[in-house]
Design a protein around this nucleic acid. Structure first.
Length: 474
RNA sequence: GGCGCGUUGGUGUAAUUGGUUAACACGCCGCCCUCUCAAGGCGGAGAGUACGGGUUCGAUCCCCGUACGCGCUACCA
């Protein structure tokens, strides 16, 4: 068998959509699994929607996820001449013909058909034009589009995930392959580029399933080998609609900014429409490469479940080396936006904080959301906490305890805890009553990791300063 | 409207060639641990496999129909 060559072919309309990322991942996994080539082609033929900066962003997101193309990136717009040339070949061989109708005329016909609820199909008027008329039109310089002449019959193919799929050619319109301004259309561009790139397997979204027979017909008309097709299920949102910006972030970049690890997103996306043997869930890229097979790819569209992503991400955070997390945290947009400058802290400090927080984080951004207090003194205190814990009987005792802390020499987890517990026991109160106040005064919150761990990391000065401020304000 | 694809708990997925109390994970609820979280441990609720017909001794699995969802139906990609 020939070399396996697959490609991911996004159109640069803004960013790498997570649905696209999933398609890219399946292509990539398949290529790696088969020792083949993974290629990237930017489909930038629509000048209205394509901008070069946007393709840069797609490439960046792909790299972030750990995927790079094995050959130079192909920009479809650069191949326009070739697409035209092939369209002309089709015209010359009689597999395509000139259509002189204007877009407006067709639109009108379409409307009428719609009104009468009958399926609209191009009536092939131009195909049946007498030779002389065509010559006359051409002499007049009348503009024309080139339409592919769909032959009679049935087009069948064996989709790798869907199995045997067939379409009646009579249901397929003679589609346009070249516009009247001479520009080629997507439908022919993909076929030509995939052929030129020697793509062996076209792995793409389900939404292209209905386009497949058209493309196969073109391959055949050109006498080209038809590649294999694998159509992946779509990804839907919780409302079972196409992933929409309203409910979920749809761009890969957004997930990065929200503190998701690339490996986690990659793993999660993989699980949408695919399950490795044993139904394993947290699976490394290396394992995934080994385990990937289309036999276990689903036909059914999948719903993007944020909660599961969060869980997977938290698993990855827990299992990622702290030093790596430090690097990521330092580059975090979110922390910066919230005024946290990690370069002001020592790596030892950041490292202790992350080690303590690691198993509590869903995303790296939670480092701020849950642990802001590690990086700045609290400015206000949880109101419910105040009501519940800052009660008259305890106030004097907490003040007294804070004095003792100021002079406490043995600033370590165990000794701090022992000290507090003994203090509480002597005053006949529950240690928890002081602990809650300690937490509230130091963090401003009622929730944190074990408070002795927290103040051990924070250090004596910072802790005492915070308690002092708390007592001043309350 | 036409054509195509799909349909297993709330979600993602399992279930050797038709024979299981329909499994696992996320989520949810409760308990334990405990200074609050998180993690962990233990337990629980939640689907009879969209619906209706077949075929079969027996269908999640095979066939047909219906419903619903999605996609295509552009001189968009």
């Amino acid at each position: 068998m020939n070399e396996i060559r697959v490609r991911f072919a996004p159109s640069p309309t803004g960013f790498l959509h997570v649905g696209g990322a999933r398609t890219a991942i399946f292509n990539w996994l398949y290529a790696r699994n088969k020792n083949g080539k993974f290629l990237l082609r930017i489909e930038d033929t629509d000048p209205e929607r394509s901008k070069s900066e946007l393709s840069e962003q797609i490439i960046r997101s792909m790299n972030w996820l750990g995927m790079i193309a094995d050959e130079p990136i192909v920009y479809q717009a650069l191949n326009i001449e070739r697409h035209k040339q092939v369209a002309l070949m089709l015209l010359e061989s009689g597999n395509a013909y000139r259509a002189f109708e204007t877009a407006e005329e067709l639109e009108e016909q379409r409307k009428i058909a719609q009104r009468n609820k009958v399926p609209f199909k191009y009536n092939r008027a131009s195909l049946n034009l007498p030779e002389v008329t065509i010559k006359k039109y051409l002499a007049e310089g009348r503009p024309y589009a080139v339409r592919f002449r769909v032959p009679e019959g049935i087009t069948e193919f064996d989709d790798i995930v869907h199995g045997k799929t067939s379409f009646k050619n009579s249901d397929i319109d003679d589609f346009v392959i070249m516009r009247s301004d001479g520009s080629p259309v997507y439908m022919i561009a993909v076929v030509v580029d995939d052929y030129d790139m020697k793509i062996s397997h076209i792995i793409r979204g389900d939404d292209h399933l209905s386009n497949t027979p058209k493309q196969i017909l073109m391959y055949r008309a050109l006498g080209w080998n038809v590649p294999e097709f694998a159509h992946l299920p779509m990804i839907l949102d919780e409302e079972k609609k196409k992933l929409s910006k309203r409910r979920n972030p749809v761009s890969t970049e957004e997930y990065k900014d929200k503190g998701y690890l690339p490996e986690a997103l990659f793993n999660f996306l993989t699980l949408l429409g695919f399950a490795p043997e044993n139904n394993a869930e947290v699976v490394s890229k290396e394992e995934l490469i080994k385990l990937f097979t289309f036999e276990r790819v689903n036909k059914k569209s999948a719903v993007f479940d944020m909660k599961k992503l969060n869980w997977i991400n938290s698993e990855y955070i827990r299992n990622t080396d702290t030093n790596e997390l430090i690097v990521i945290a330092k580059g975090s947009k979110y922390l910066a936006e919230n005024g946290i400058d990690l370069s002001k802290f020592t790596d030892v400090y950041i490292s202790s904080v992350i080690m303590l927080m690691k198993e509590r984080l869903n995303t790296l951004n939670d480092l701020y959301d849950f642990g802001e207090y590690f990086f700045k003194d609290p400015e206000n205190y949880d109101e419910k906490g105040i009501v519940k814990y800052w009660v008259a009987e305890i106030k004097p005792l907490f003040r007294e305890f804070s004095k003792e802390l100021e002079n406490f020499k043995h600033w370590s987890l165990l000794e701090l805890e022992e000290k507090l517990r003994i203090f509480a026991e002597n005053r006949q109160i529950k240690a928890a009553q002081l602990i809650h106040l300690l937490r509230l005064s130091v963090t401003g919150k009622t929730v944190s990791p074990g408070i002795f761990e927290v103040i051990e990391i924070m250090g004596k000065d910072s802790t005492n300063r915070r308690i002092y401020n708390f007592l001043q304000k309350n």
